[in-house]
Design a protein around this nucleic acid. Structure first.
Lengths: 149, 149, 149, 149
DNA sequence: TTTT
DNA sequence: TTTT
């Protein structure tokens, strides 16, 4: 099947500080959730707030960038692709979790904004190169095997 | 939170014929899965096939278009946004399913291709207008309450 | 020709304050240029700066939003479509200018940032709705008839 | 200026057969125009046809793919970025041409469709890898120096 | 569960 | 200059 496209663009805020982990094969990986605002004005003209949460997965050099320079509350742009992985819960039931495998992460707010964690105080280098991540295996990420959404 | 973006673009093939349903409030809705090809060439130069499946939800006039003119195997373009909804399984456990709420559906292969179902024999009108779906509530779709991924 | 897509996404900074104008038919319109950074690291590891400039055109309510709340230097997100219009220069030669007709404009930096103009001091309302602009006629914009790039 | 995005997505039909050329530095390059349909229904319910033409530039391996397997009338998907280059017309006046530098080209209609040229009869290999083109210099393309839009 |  |  040659004709295919799987592309996601998000702008939103990190729900927590990204924490660096490693896959069983030693690849750096970072997971965090990202909030997008889906608020709208209803028929009565009243503003309704609604937040959508997305699970972001970042590998390799960009994972290290995230761990070093991003933190909870930061506004970022994410380009990536959708991937749904299968896992087993404690009852042995198959579950599915959909994640965005990021190919590009870009901080949008000024450095030092929204930061409570010490890792965000260092000067942030530029991080704009797109990287071909190749096939990724989030399921082999240490400590993620039983993670619910 | 003003700054926000939640955008998905997919090109892929339908896994089954779309079937028209109605939300409890009477809105036309269609669900189908879409396959994107994530095949790649490994380090040994060997081709590895991999398919990613996406759950697509379409409302209103575009839902009727899908039910009337699309069918299993058709190649389509989808523009939409990510939404994760919560549901309870038989054990009373909370589960999450991520779907793409489509705002635009576009058939890419010539009409009449890949069709085995009778609904696809009628001439297909153009269907290119983008429609603001507003807030959507897939959870209120009749018969979807217990649907696993 | 049913199958068609024409979509542009930009994140960049305004080159000047947007100035509100009106088409001959009375539609509010705003034009400004937007800079995207295309810098890269050359083979010698040296950083090369390069800026790409884009002509943005915004109509109707979003035009008024831009005129009222944006200013030179602000970081924004633009979603739109490409359009090339024809015009005649003083020598009577046909020229072409390619513009991005914006369907969505979103400020990304905190309100009050980078602002030197008085129009940006008022509190900015949210501006996230996508608006179907319909067919647009930049050529009928008063004072744009002879505008070079 | 770290935060930046310059992304274009197009689905349309080739206006002519792509012809392979080489930059002065020996890079394969292909130029062709792509038509997107901007037709709409006016207030009287009458269908208005409108076509937008885009200049596409493709480099390296993807240029060879285009020259070998694409032809006039084929439906393709293009992912790329906007670039405006400066050139001098016969009167010595500076002119600007905006092009889409493609990073990914994908044929959407079945192989062998719409082909009148002999180069499209060979079996088409898959061509889905995204390629980092790096900085590109369309201005140095042989024979393009004086090309009007 | 699609397709080439 | 494409196509349905």
């Amino acid at each position: 099947m040659a004709a295919s496209l799987n592309k996601v663009f998000l702008i939103g805020r990190l729900g927590q500080d990204p924490k660096l982990a490693y896959t069983t094969s030693g690849m750096p990986v970072v997971n965090f959730s990202l909030a997008t605002d889906e608020g709208y004005t209803d028929k009565n003209g009243k503003r309704v707030d609604k937040t959508e949460w997305h699970r972001i997965v970042v590998f390799n050099k960009q994972a290290e960038f995230c761990a070093n320079y991003l933190s909870k509350g930061r506004l970022i742009f994410v380009e990536g692709r959708l991937q749904t992985r299968e896992w087993q819960d404690q009852q042995g039931q198959t579950r599915y979790t959909t994640e965005i495998i990021a190919s590009r992460i870009q901080a949008l707010d000024p450095k030092g904004t929204s930061t409570t964690s010490p890792n965000a105080t260092a000067p942030a280098p530029e991080q704009t190169e797109e990287e071909d991540l190749g096939p990724t295996f989030p399921s082999e990420v240490a400590g993620m095997d039983d993670a619910p959404f």
